[in-house]
Amino acid sequence: MANNIQHYIDELHQHRIWRSVFRSGSGDSNLHRAQAVQSNVFLHLFAVKSRRRMLEFSATWYLGALTFGTFLVLVITGILLMLYYHPSVPQAYADMKDLQFVVSSGVFLRNLHRWSAHAMVFLVFAHMFKVFYRGAYRPPREFNWVIGVVLLLITLLLSYTGYLLPWDQLAYWAVTVGSNIASAVPLLGQKIRFMMLGGNSVNANALLRFYVLHCMVLPLTAIFLMAIHFWRIRKDGGLYAPDKPAKEGTK
């Protein structure tokens, strides 16, 4: 039975259509493995080989990977949540109640989205400090560090724009205070706030703007920058490994 299934799976893998889609097999040889990375549009951002010592947990704490993991969770849950969300006042709040009470597993998805968002902010900060203390921003990685800083800001903005969407007291007043901070910018403050909210107070326009930023503009920018971020790791010589004395290297 098991052999039969294995047989069919192998057949499938050898089939012309399958081969046309997946150029490489998941063969056991290193060549196949290298091909698997190189021929995959997502994986080709990574180098084929990586330093063994960077696999140690203590080297990176996997903070970058974890951050990306939270981002994936956020994208998936976010898309599902969008299906039950109207960015209008006060329907947005009613939708929160519906997610909580009548949509199957709606409350779970909302919780997951919310907690993942918090986790992502935390992980991004942690990632940044870890990178700093390891000195991984040094040339030639300086531009990747700058992209990282921009990604940090985007993460904060994503979280902040998402904060308004439930249209509850927490959201409303956090955004009111935040937008007033923006208005403290010398000379342009009021204009920035006006543009940000699409009006003079936090109302339906602001909700729609934050919604578009949260669901379209910021995620797409983040994905774009993340791609560069990952690709630059490869181009800048893989994960930064601090210099080690020769005697350790011979080991």
């Binding site: 009613a94 109640k97 519906d98 909580q100 009470f101 009548v102």
Partner: peptide, 8 residues
């Protein structure tokens, strides 16, 4: 009225 648990 929107709630579906007794407490809420």
């Amino acid at each position: 009225g929107t709630a579906t648990t007794e407490r809420e």
